[in-house]
Design a protein around this nucleic acid. Sequence first.
DNA 1: GAATCGTTTTAAGGTTGATGTAAGGTTCTC
DNA 2: GAGAACCTTACATCAACCTTAAAACGATTC
Lengths: 238, 238
Amino acid sequence: MEKVKDKKILIVDDEPEIRMMVERFLRKEGFFRVYTAEDCASALSICRRDKPDIAILDVMLPDGDGFTLLSSIREFSDLPVLFLSACGEDADRLLGLGLGADDYMVKPFLPRELVLRLMAILRRVYSSPVTEYLAVFRLGERTTIDLDSAVVRNDQRELPLTAKEHAILAKLYENRGRIVTNDALCQAVWGDDSYGYENTLMVHIRRVREKIEQDPSNPIHLLTVRGLGYKLLVKEKA
Amino acid sequence: MEKVKDKKILIVDDEPEIRMMVERFLRKEGFFRVYTAEDCASALSICRRDKPDIAILDVMLPDGDGFTLLSSIREFSDLPVLFLSACGEDADRLLGLGLGADDYMVKPFLPRELVLRLMAILRRVYSSPVTEYLAVFRLGERTTIDLDSAVVRNDQRELPLTAKEHAILAKLYENRGRIVTNDALCQAVWGDDSYGYENTLMVHIRRVREKIEQDPSNPIHLLTVRGLGYKLLVKEKA
DNA sequence: GAATCGTTTTAAGGTTGATGTAAGGTTCTC
DNA sequence: GAGAACCTTACATCAACCTTAAAACGATTC
């Protein structure tokens, strides 16, 4: 369980004084993973690269405004956002909150209040039992696997996965790049009392390969490691 | 318990005008499970008995203050709390937020902002990604579903949805494209203690299919994924 | 408080495709 | 070249799911 103060915080503000003031205060409060950005472009790239846990956005920025920035972020992420702005007009607050911000503070502000509000958001976001998200990922140029909807897209074809195939792929994906022993796989699929399913596992592995490999008899993604187990090679998240 | 607007809201305020004003506005906004209390004692008993999903607390109350009330609530519950107070002093805000409130608004306030802030909290706490506006969608050329008014339009016909059918479709829509397990669906429809409704669920799924599919026995929108659950395929927002 | 109507649940029989079994084949390792 | 580990295929089975009808429920009206 990660502590709230281990969370990565991104500060986006074009005024250096504000940026540094907030950063210094957050560090003093015990947050040690603080990033900053001074325009939309760099903020976006940081969001994609470093995946902060929460962002503090200014509304007026040199290359755009915070509202547009939030919309762009929302296209690929559910990142918690707190607006910190000199624009305290009713319309601005409503707009910001309506766009899906988690809070909206008006400058000048109490640093202490900022921290408390940040923590209120982080508490909720990271204590809630986040819906067990699985994954969508890519095996090669031609193949993607969507565990959430249990389908494999191979070239143009869309092949559904059965329950066991899904369980096998989920376990392999959980340990992608590493070897998963037959025992571990059996246990993941049939539960604790899974002795005697080795052969059945093989049959299912074959079925999975028929769906995810171009040539199931010469697998390049789901590999056998003789004497040890199986291994799934994943190219990237997609 | 899918939509944010199905959540139970408790309003605690000793001034009847405020209480009724907030309540009326929330109902107008679509929240229909609103409770009120005018002192700490009754607020506490409501919290224990009816377990609201979020509370709006005034700070000054006839038999104590909102801060003490929050502390009492925190002894047995993690209930999200938004303070709504005439006391806008720095110290009050810091105290309220420091005690674990999720937000703190100062009177006078914009009703719309209250709703947006409530929804921001509910979104995080119950991580229900669907916003209020997305509840009308299209399944195919012929079929649209309107969850707001609970009707299905299939060809020219307009079919009303029952409560259970609505709950099922809401849960499936919330996870559109992804598999929803039978357990999750039962829980969404019948609450936490939903063991033993699998068969009933099937019957309801059949009824839903009779409304949204051309040929209910060969569904193309609401699919069964054997061993995993059900999946709703949505063409687009409409 | 009985009658009505729409909704929900129960129950029982039917269907089907994912799963497990088994038998024969292949490849690797020593 | 023998033994072990793994692959491949086809088939039968049974749990998971479907379907239907009737009973139970609950809200509304007279």
